[in-house]
Design a protein around this nucleic acid. Structure first.
Length: 818
DNA sequence: GGCTCCCGGGG
DNA sequence: GTGTACGGGAGCC
């Protein structure tokens, strides 16, 4: 009997000798790849009979004929469980193979006296990992022996697998890839037709670009090969030699991997990268995915889009914007439209593109490295392997955390909804948060308070859970859900499943926050990531309860959560007004007050009074102090627009909320003008100056002093020109390009400028190179680009948009500070 | 408003 | 793989 220590990274199972065998690919504590095999685990699911029904003996002899084979139930056990807050006598039904489960389930369903069949869709390996407490990226002591196998890594057959260390953080080996392909400008990306021209790798100690045309260069990382097929061979070879635990790329699920696969297919090259010799698998569903057995394929883009999006300020998720925000690095500035031409006619210029190629791989690598701690924390909380954490959304993260915890509560998990129920749930909209409509205006001395994790703390403090809803033990005695739900209460005697778990997440995070100050460097980053992961997950519970496809879906719970939310925020508002603060705005969990002559300390005292009366983990926190801020008016009516304001901090930093400042269909001049206006108004308090500034811009437009590149509007063609019913300006321009014989199709980026005339817009759209400097329709840019961007801001001061447009000076100054 | 369709990223 | 798929914005009545 041997002993090893290892951490699992990627998991699967195979049927060997008619038995399912679990494969845990991972790394030993000596950092060697290994696969731990385990075979003493059987698939099972639960059956809950109607009360009084005894189905055990009937099920024990149950069998189904399937494709000539007789499938039997392997074993049935009586178990006492909890289901939706009730004790139930259930049957645990074991089968021989995972594939037998759906077959048996379908037949068993027809038996009379069944209340429900549960947990029949939890995948075999995941079931094993939950039951055996196998947490990916955590270290285990394994007893067993090395055996022969045809895997590319040693195989260790385990007799026992025991968690040894949870805090030691593994350092998986990451390899980033990026390809450049032959794509003539204005043409679609077509893997079936166009070759890969270069391939870059970035890993620990490896920087390489393979390219299959020769040119003179000093770049030492460039390696010339003779054909595209050799590039694909190099792809395999590099991976085999480097032995990464993780292969990463930016949008590699949707682009690089499928492209490489398509080209490999063309040359009949087998991409047998899997540690079991299996091929790279490309799955084309709604979302394309690329998977390799034993090696995690991490698509950085997917994780950022699905999990990190809310914590980033960018609203574009291309590599350039994301790298800029997360790494403070930009992509190399080359014009990709030129690459194919240069490839055909001017190879000596390819060096720049090799640099670009490697840099993209480097950025993907750095992003993967940076996000790894957060990903690993998500993995540890949910038990899902990295591959899955990378691809699921928040609802699935919450659900797997609940599924992982449910055995500890002796619970049977509810089923996912199907068919009509799904449609019904989908159509329901619940009443959301309370928003206090702001009076448009400029304000000073704004103090902002918000409830720390409002919904999570409400769920915890008020014991909101499907199993505690309207319990019989508290009927008539428990406090009712505020206001409109007086027929609803939650148990006050027994803590529910979801409140227990959510409070666990919150308190774990609070503990981390306490100790984080005493750590620095690597350790600090890990704690930061852990805290962030816990917060993201806790914040997702409310959404999960109201998510139509959730197992623990509960409309009553979701509605009660927002009802309590409205109750608590309104309470702060009315108490603040009683204390003579002016409440200017409130949204969901935050309140904006002006001091109205009082001191900052008075506001802090006020919050402290509120906190004395809050239950459980609920807390109203001081969020910030802003010397000035502006709330703009709504398009319709008199009131202020919700969720649209800008604040200036004590250091003069400007926070803009809710204004669509970066939009694809806007020109640079419109965006620039809006930003400048906020700056002048909030920091210099000079609305006249801001007004004059805009008038200046408008004048410059009139006098054609604004350069052409600031009025260019850029849009991408998304489908063949003929397929557009609504022909916008960019479609019209594309059509003309095509008529001229240029290659225009989906993916072409169309840039245009609106030129003067009386015809409809699309007939006046021109390519920038078709026209001369200044040849744009000043009125269009004034009325449809610049004025709409700032109109609402000036409404606050009583300016009308007509005054902006008027060429004669005419200003009003009243209503500066409200 | 509500409903449907399209798109994201990538070269 | 013991499976299923998202979510937001624009355009259209």
């Amino acid at each position: 009997m041997d002993k090893i220590r290892f951490y699992p990274i990627d998991t699967t199972y195979k049927i060997i000798n008619n038995k399912p065998v679990i494969y845990l690919f991972g790394k030993t504590s000596e950092d060697k790849q290994i696969c731990v095999l385990y075979e003493d685990f059987l698939p099972y699911f639960y059956l809950i009979p109607e009360t009084g029904q005894d189905l055990k003996s009937r099920l024990e002899s149950f069998e189904v004929k399937n494709e000539g084979e007789t499938i039997k139930i392997f074993k049935v056990e009586n178990v006492k469980k909890r289901y939706y807050g009730e004790d139930v006598n259930a049957l645990k039904i074991f089968t021989k193979l995972p594939s037998h489960v759906p077959i048996l389930r379908e037949e068993i369903k027809t038996i009379e006296g069944i209340k429900s069949i549960n947990e029949n869709d939890i995948l075999f390996v995941r079931r094993f990992m939950i039951d055996h407490n196998i947490i990916p990226m955590s270290f285990y002591d394994v007893e067993g022996e090395l055996i022969n196998s045809n895997l590319k890594v040693p195989s260790f057959k385990a007799s026992s697998i025991v968690l040894s260390e949870t805090d030691k953080v593994p350092k998986p080996k990451i390899l980033a890839i990026d390809i450049e392909t032959y794509t003539p400008s204005h043409k679609e990306i077509v893997p079936e037709k166009n070759p890969i021209i270069m391939l870059a790798f970035h890993g620990d100690g490896i920087k390489k670009v393979f390219v299959w045309k020769h040119f003179k260069t000093d770049l030492d990382y460039v390696e010339f090969v003779d054909s595209e097929a050799t590039i694909i061979e190099k792809f395999k070879e590099t991976i085999a030699q480097y032995k990464p635990d993780i292969i990463t790329g930016y949008y590699s699920d949707g682009f690089d991997m499928p492209y490489i696969k398509a080209r490999a297919d063309k040359y009949k090259i087998k991409l047998d990268l899997g540690l079991d010799g299996s091929e790279l698998r490309i799955k084309k569903a709604i979302n394309v995915t690329a998977q390799i057995t034993g090696i995690v394929h991490l698509d950085v883009f997917k994780f950022i889009r699905k999990i990190m999006a809310g914590t980033l300020t960018t609203d574009k998720y291309n590599l350039d914007s994301v790298a800029h925000e997360i790494l403070n690095e930009k992509k190399h500035d080359v014009n990709l439209d030129d690459l194919s031409k240069i490839w055909d006619t001017d190879v000596e210029q390819l060096g720049e593109f090799c640099k670009y190629n490697l840099h993209d791989a480097t950025l993907a690598y750095k992003l993967a490295e940076k996000l790894m701690p957060t990903i690993i924390e998500m993995v540890k909380i949910t038990n899902l392997p990295i591959y899955d954490v990378n691809r699921v959304g928040y609802s699935q993260l919450v659900e797997w955390y609940l599924l992982k915890q449910s055995p500890a509560f002796n619970q049977i998990a509810p089923n996912k909804p199907h068919g009509k129920e799904l449609i019904r749930r989908r159509s329901i909209r619940i009443k959301g948060a309370f928003v206090f409509e702001p009076k448009p205006g400029l304000y000073k001395d704004i103090t902002v308070f918000d409830y720390r994790s409002l919904y999570p703390t409400i769920i915890g403090s008020h014991n909101i859970s499907p199993g505690t809803l309207n319990c019989s033990c508290c009927e008539g005695t428990a406090k009712k859900v505020p206001l409109e739900f007086q027929n609803r209460w939650f148990c006050e005697k027994r803590k529910g499943f979801i409140p227990t778990l959510i409070e666990d997440l919150i308190t774990r995070r609070m503990r981390i926050k306490e100790i984080i100050k005493d750590h620095e460097g690597e350790q600090h980053r890990i704690l930061e990531a852990r805290s962030n992961a816990l917060k993201l997950l806790a914040n997702s519970f409310y959404g999960y309860l109201g998510f139509y496809a959730a197992r623990w879906y509960s409309l009553d719970c979701a509605e009660s959560t927002t009802a309590y939310g409205r109750y608590y925020i309104k309470q702060v508002i009315s108490k603040a007004e009683k204390e003579k603060f002016e409440v200017i705005y409130s949204d969901t969990d935050s309140v904006f007050l002006t001091l109205d002559g009082k001191k900052k300390e008075d506001a802090l005292m006020f919050a402290e009074h509120i906190n004395r009366e809050l239950p459980g983990l609920m807390e109203l926190e001081f969020d910030g102090f802003y010397p000035s801020g502006i709330f703009v008016s709504a398009k319709m009516g008199e009131g202020g627009a919700k969720k649209r304001y800008a604040l200036a901090s004590e250091t003069g930093e400007i926070k803009i909320k809710g204004f669509e400042s970066v939009r694809r269909n806007t020109s640079t001049i419109s965006k620039e003008t809006q930003e400048k206006v906020f700056e002048i108004i909030l920091n210099e308090h000079d609305n006249k100056k801001a007004f004059e500034y805009v008038k200046g811009v408008i004048n410059d437009l009139r006098n054609k002093k604004i350069p052409l590149d600031k009025v260019i509007i850029s849009t991408q063609l998304k489908k063949p020109i003929e397929e557009y019913d609504a022909k916008g300006p960019h479609v019209a321009v594309a059509q003309r390009l095509k008529n001229r014989g240029e290659n225009i199709g989906p993916g072409s980026s169309i840039q245009f400028v609106v030129t003067p005339g009386s015809d409809i817009i699309r007939n006046r759209a021109r390519l920038p190179d078709e026209i001369k400097e200044g040849e744009y329709d000043q009125d269009y840019y004034i009325n449809h680009q610049v004025v709409p961007a700032v109109e609402r801001i000036f409404n606050v001061f009583g300016y009308k948009k007509e005054e902006l447009i008027e060429s004669k000076d005419q200003t009003k100054l009243e209503g500066f500070f409200k």
